[in-house]
C-alpha cells in the first residue's frame, strides 16, 4: 500500500519525482491485476475443466488446454442426462432448486413486509423491544435450531416435504428481511401517511398503495439477495429434505463428490450448472444485489 498516491493532481516537477510516480502507479496496477487474477483463475480453471474430455482432464492440467484447444460440451450432457450418476440427476436437481427457491423468496418478503410495516408505522406495547429481539436473531447460528425443528417436522410429516423447507427458509430469512424493510419503511416521509389517513385510507390501503410502490428498490434488493442465498443453500436442504428425489443442486454436487471425487470433468460441469442462475442474476441485477448485501452487513 506504499504505492498509493493521494494527490494525483499535483504533478512532480523533477525528473526523479516523475520517475517515482510512474513506478508507484505501476505498483498499483501490478498488485491489483495480481489480486484480480488470483480471484479469477480458480473459477476459470473449473470452467475450462468442464469443457475438457475425461481423458484430457485426468492426464494434463486445465491450463494446457488454453494453448491446445479441444473443447466439448459432452460433460454437461452426461451430468444432466446420464442414468449412472447419483439420482435424481442434475436435470432434476436443477428443477428442484427452482421449486425450493421461488416460494422461499416470495414468502419471507411478504411476511416480513407486513411485520416491518407494523414495526415502522404502528404503535404497540413493546414494539421497539420486540424489534430488537428480531434483530438479535440475525446472529443465531442455524446449528442451534436443527434438532428441535426437525422434531417438529417429523411430528407434522413435513420432513422430506418442500413445504417444510419453504417454511424453514421463510423463518430463517425473516430477521434480515424485517430489519432491512423496517428501516426502509421508517425512512419514508411521514406526511404521506398522515394525509392518507386524513383521507380515511385504511392501513391495508396505505400499505399497498403507498408503502409497497415506494419500496420497490428495497424489495427488489431483498428478493435478489434471498433468491441467491436460498439457491446456494446446502445445509437446510440436506437436513430437512432427506429425500434424494427432492434434493437441489448443492446437495447433488456434494453427492457427486462422494462417488466421483476424481472425475473432474463431471464435477466441474455439475458445479457450473449450479452457478449459471446466480451468475445471470448477478450480472443482470448487480446493483440491486450489491445493495441488498451491503445493507445486510450485519447478516451472518
Amino acid at each position: 500500500m506504499t504505492t498509493q498516491d493521494t494527490s494525483p493532481e499535483t504533478q512532480p516537477k523533477t525528473l526523479g519525482g516523475q520517475l517515482v510516480k510512474v513506478v508507484s502507479t505501476g505498483g498499483v496496477h501490478v498488485i491489483l491485476i495480481g489480486v484480480a487474477l488470483l480471484w479469477l483463475i480458480p473459477s476459470l480453471g473449473l470452467f475450462v475443466t468442464s469443457l475438457r474430455t475425461r481423458a484430457a482432464s485426468s492426464q494434463s492440467g486445465w491450463w494446457t488446454a488454453l494453448t491446445d484447444f479441444d473443447f466439448t460440451l459432452d460433460n454437461y450432457d452426461t451430468v444432466l442426462n446420464s442414468a449412472d450418476l447419483p439420482p435424481p440427476g442434475f436435470a432434476d436437481n436443477f428443477i428442484n432448486t427452482f421449486i425450493i427457491t421461488i416460494p422461499s423468496t416470495i414468502l419471507p418478503i411478504a411476511v416480513a413486509a407486513f411485520a416491518a410495516y407494523a414495526f415502522a408505522w404502528m404503535n404497540f406495547r413493546g414494539r421497539d423491544w420486540i424489534f430488537l429481539g428480531v434483530v438479535a436473531m440475525l446472529v443465531i447460528p442455524l446449528q442451534v435450531t436443527w434438532v428441535p425443528v426437525l422434531k417438529i417436522f417429523n411430528q407434522l410429516n413435513l420432513t422430506g416435504q418442500f413445504w417444510g423447507l419453504w417454511l424453514a427458509h421463510t423463518a430463517y430469512g425473516l430477521p434480515f428481511a424485517i430489519f432491512l424493510l423496517r428501516n426502509f419503511f421508517a425512512d419514508l416521509p411521514k406526511d404521506l401517511f398522515e394525509s392518507a389517513r386524513i383521507d380515511g385510507a385504511s392501513e391495508i390501503k396505505v400499505f399497498f398503495r403507498i408503502v409497497v410502490p415506494l419500496s420497490i428498490p428495497a424489495l427488489a434488493s431483498l428478493a435478489i439477495f434471498q433468491f441467491v442465498w436460498v439457491w446456494n443453500d446446502l445445509m437446510n436442504a440436506l437436513i430437512f429434505l432427506q429425500d434424494v428425489e427432492k434434493f437441489p443442486l448443492t446437495v447433488g454436487i456434494n453427492n457427486l463428490l462422494g462417488q466421483y471425487g476424481n472425475e473432474w470433468h463431471l464435477l466441474a460441469a455439475g458445479a457450473f450448472i449450479s452457478m449459471i442462475v446466480p451468475l445471470i442474476v448477478f450480472f443482470a441485477l448487480q446493483r440491486y444485489f450489491v445493495r441488498g448485501l451491503t445493507a445486510g452487513a450485519v447478516k451472518g
Binding site: 480471484w39 479469477l40 473459477s43 441467491v228 439457491w231 446456494n232 443453500d233 446446502l234 443442486l249 448443492t250 454436487i253 456434494n254 458445479a271 457450473f272 449450479s274 452457478m275 446466480p278 451468475l279 442474476v281 448477478f282 444485489f289 448485501l293
Partner: peptide, 9 residues
C-alpha cells in the same frame, strides 16, 4: 463473483 456462487461450488 465468488460471493454469488454457492459454498458448495
Amino acid at each position: 463473483l465468488p460471493l454469488v456462487i454457492s459454498f458448495t461450488a
